[in-house]
């Protein structure tokens, strides 16, 4: 390619790209509004559910409106779950008064309820344990592995969905600090 044809090709390409940028908001107007549905993904409203504690007390996600909630899917045979839960308890102790709630959903269809309950009580956790007896809430949240952590902001939207050990005490503290002190998300 000689110099002149290179310049004309380059200018043509740049112009086509510029036109595409200008046309984008016309072809795909305000697609942000699309993400107001309910889905187990960052930016969407968290799917609502209602589950019982081992003692039979019902808890519904909708009753935690205007409060930050961590939905934590776990099983008693999961060593990573057990390694992060003490950190969650520490955060819960510090932030519960400000309205922070942890709903620790045991994936009971893949666990033994007695073993899960025994572990939970032996550790003296003070946050709420819920029993997903038939795995329907796990399905609703498309859980493929435990632990999976879903952080729900006061507006009911999912701000983070973390699979595995990424849900650390420090990460959660930083998130809540930002939420409570700056009032932002």
């Amino acid at each position: 390619m000689n110099k002149k044809s290179f310049i004309s090709v380059a200018i043509t390409l740049a112009l086509i790209c510029l036109v595409w940028i200008i046309l984008t908001p016309i072809f795909f107007p305000n697609t942000q509004a699309d993400a107001v549905g309910t889905a187990p993904h960052r930016g969407f409203y968290a799917p609502v559910f209602s589950l019982n504690t081992p003692q039979g007390e019902a808890h519904s996600l909708s009753s935690y409106q205007d409060r930050p909630v961590l939905i934590f899917f776990w099983a008693s045979h999961c060593s990573i779950c057990k390694s992060v839960m003490p950190g969650l308890e520490a955060v819960y102790q510090d932030y519960a008064q400000q309205g922070f709630e942890i709903l620790a959903i045991n994936t009971t269809n893949q666990d033994h309820l007695s073993a899960a309950e025994a572990y939970f009580q032996s550790q003296g956790y003070t946050f709420t344990m819920l029993v997903d007896q038939d795995g329907s809430v796990s399905d609703q949240y498309q859980i493929h592995a435990v632990p999976t952590s879903v952080i729900v902001n006061p507006d009911g939207k999912i701000s983070d969905l973390i699979i595995g050990s990424g849900i650390s005490e420090g990460f959660l503290r930083a998130h809540l600090d930002t939420l409570f002190t700056k009032g932002g998300q």
Partner: peptide, 20 residues
């Protein structure tokens, strides 16, 4: 960006989690 974490527990800096 979150200096309180470091003051709280300096080991947070080296924590082996894929977050923070």
């Amino acid at each position: 960006k979150n200096p309180s974490l470091l003051l709280n527990n300096p080991l947070n800096l080296l924590s082996l989690t894929p977050s923070m």
